[in-house]
Amino acid sequence: MAWTREQMAQRAASELEDGFYVNLGIGIPTLVSNYIPEGMEIQLQSENGMLGMGPFPFEGEEDADLINAGKQTVTELPTTSYFSNADSFAMIRGGHINLSILGAMQVAQNGDLANWMIPGKMVKGMGGAMDLVAGVKKVIVVMEHTAKGEPKLLKTCNLPLTGKEVVDMVITDMAVFEFEKNGTPRMKLIELADGVTLDEVKAATEAEYDVAL
């Protein structure tokens, strides 16, 4: 037994705090918006140039001028503001966004993140990922623990990096890890998914980590 995608998103949502400005990546991170606790005020940022992103529109009400960073049609809220892409990344790089939740291909035990490029394969580009991980106050990675049986939590990433020592927390289908950022970053196992044992996590992880359950 391990966590489903929905449960991973739910776990990530428990890191939200009232008043947070949050940027959600594509994939499982997008699902986090379904689990914002009742009564909590969260503003979602879309890096193309929008703060206060609403849900998908009703059919027939799509507006080609109103999309999120994944180019999906979205809606506006009473709190919405629009701005240029330069203003959007000033917000991101300047540390005004509280939390970024995104996916990854690999995370290393020092908090290095790789999620944009596989050498030899078609490169699509990094989009805003490098700016987000460099600038946002807290970076949470949500990803499957392994890919085709191979660990994704490694001693060092062997794919080109998106950012160096940038990850604060990793939530996988098996466990939750935190990164101590004082001095050389250290990875710490803080939680096991339902029905997952320490030995199972150890077998599926190449990175070295402390256990602090």
């Binding site: 890096e47 892409n85 959007s88 990344f89 790089r93 805003g128 490098m130 460099a134 160096k164």
Partner: peptide, 25 residues
């Protein structure tokens, strides 16, 4: 990187030939 790109364009238009950013370090 997207934020570097938009800032490069902003800077170019504002007469700033270069700038420093932590993105991509």
């Amino acid at each position: 990187p997207q934020g570097t790109l938009s800032e490069q364009i902003r800077a170019g238009g504002a007469g700033i030939p270069a700038f420093y950013t932590k993105t991509g370090v």
